[in-house]
Design a protein around this nucleic acid. Sequence first.
DNA 1: TCTCTGAGCGCAAAGCTTTGCGGAACTGTT
DNA 2: AACAGTTCCGCAAAGCTTTGCGCTCAGAGA
Lengths: 329, 329
Amino acid sequence: MENITLKKISEILGLSISSVSRALKNHPDISVATKKRVNELAEFLNYEPNINAINLRAKKNRVLGLMVPTIAGFFYSSFISAVEEECRANDYTLIILQSGSDPEIEKNNLSVCRQNRVSGLFVCLSTHTTDMEAFDKIKEADIPLIFFDKVPESNVYDKICVADKEVAKLAAELLIEKNKHHILALFGNRNLSISKIRLGSFTNTISVVKGVKTYTEHCNSYVAAKNITTEYFSKKGIPDAVFCMSDEILIGVMKSLMELKIDIPGKTAIIALSDGFWPKLYTPEITYIETSGYKLGKLAFARMMNCIDGKVEPAELYINSPLVSGGSI
Amino acid sequence: MENITLKKISEILGLSISSVSRALKNHPDISVATKKRVNELAEFLNYEPNINAINLRAKKNRVLGLMVPTIAGFFYSSFISAVEEECRANDYTLIILQSGSDPEIEKNNLSVCRQNRVSGLFVCLSTHTTDMEAFDKIKEADIPLIFFDKVPESNVYDKICVADKEVAKLAAELLIEKNKHHILALFGNRNLSISKIRLGSFTNTISVVKGVKTYTEHCNSYVAAKNITTEYFSKKGIPDAVFCMSDEILIGVMKSLMELKIDIPGKTAIIALSDGFWPKLYTPEITYIETSGYKLGKLAFARMMNCIDGKVEPAELYINSPLVSGGSI
DNA sequence: TCTCTGAGCGCAAAGCTTTGCGGAACTGTT
DNA sequence: AACAGTTCCGCAAAGCTTTGCGCTCAGAGA
């Protein structure tokens, strides 16, 4: 079966193309009888309008782009899931691209987005991105651009974030409240603003209390997190609490502690910032502050709609992040 | 800045649209000097061809559709990751849709795909899909359709699968070799062909050995898997091995065994079919037979290219699945 | 000087949809 | 009978790109 077009339907029915188009759109100019004929034939032939033609004419694509380092992440897939849901509900098509944390691919992906005439773009920066020029061109072209999770520091961009300062503070306060004095605090890649902010807020909060010793470390993978943890717990004397900045780090830490058979929370307490799935897998369940990718996705989409509708000033928006108690502290 | 088109470039340069188009495509009819002028201006203006116009003219979209129950799955995100990589490398755009395991949404998504004139479609069926009519219409429209993971039983469709029979057999043989006699075997949703096949092959293989007792159960979530495991291990006498059909089940089983502080592999052995990430998180690492979503994605894409290129008969293709030894058996 | 060749470029159509405008046929009014 | 007002539909253009074909002009060969 060939492609069904308005033209084909019009020829079969002896109507003009425009009448068929209007009939399908329930335009008042068209008689009820004609509408019926057209609709029935269209249904029978499985007619679907050619979205390329529509977009071409409308000069407006209902297409959004979404770029992440990798889909298969701890956090991204739930973010994407939320955005896709909203796109579907609002008749947007979503194009997902991975950068593989390669700035070169990142640039190419931006080209792809422009070719596809996306109406908006969600981006989680790769760890190695330093040159923002390609992104600035997107902005110049008046394509709404929303960063999430890994965002640039400059405030000329729209950003959707976890309230990094607050969640790190919350975690620190909980540790203080529980009277922890030897704290191993693990953070992600030291170049990322997300790591810097969380680290700053965490240590600031902790530092007001006398006699608390905090060991801060950075790690780029769960394996690194595991190794660092093992080092501390086997050689350097046992911390009475571990703070994990992300799920990835939590996993590494837990792997280490399980190997060493460290009792939780008896020997050491754990507190994490997490999407919420992983903490439930351990026994006891890990106490965490929720940094939900799903919520972030919903918020990002809502923001995108605002950006597309009217002009809004670049802003940094936050989702709220409740404390979820497990038994690890 | 407005949208840059060939027309705009041609006006600025005092050329015809067609000459600009040819210049950008390095057509021999165009002089070197003109090519240079055109390319420089195009670069300066950030020209990107309008893909809608291209597709409209070519009557051929380099767009593929991909539908899964949810992106945020144990397995899907790595499948998607692989497909996206290939799409990018081959200049295809990928549209990802979630069905939420709702046949109604599934149908709508197929409409979306047709509107977008996808050149091909990857589908993992939702658990509740029974009516294949909408998919048959896709086939009638000559859109290559490849099922993966959760596939329909009929062999009129193209299918990319884990070699379910073989992997289940492999696991069973390993358990026999290790002399296990009380085996708890956990499978997924009993309506899925994937569960049926794995169950059939597993029990068949085990049954040739005398004196082995196998307890087979079905579970639809990791929580269910956990509860069933706990029931067996706390009340019904301790199995000396557990077989987990999927990552989801493995997670539930491990959560239970960790709670009950069952020694692995001392008290009980574990063998799983898994994508490979989760088994490494436990101590000891879990022995598993790899059912890689990533590999599946790569194979699915290659198959798709064949389908698009030439006519190929519907077939069922398999990825190979090596045994990866951990310390759980 | 005339013709031929080829280099370099432009014209126009096609692909599909939407929409402003105009037109035919009919109904109803005076 | 003349006119106005509806109802219902068609024409044509625009949106952007690609490509077959045809055109112009310069230079070469006769």
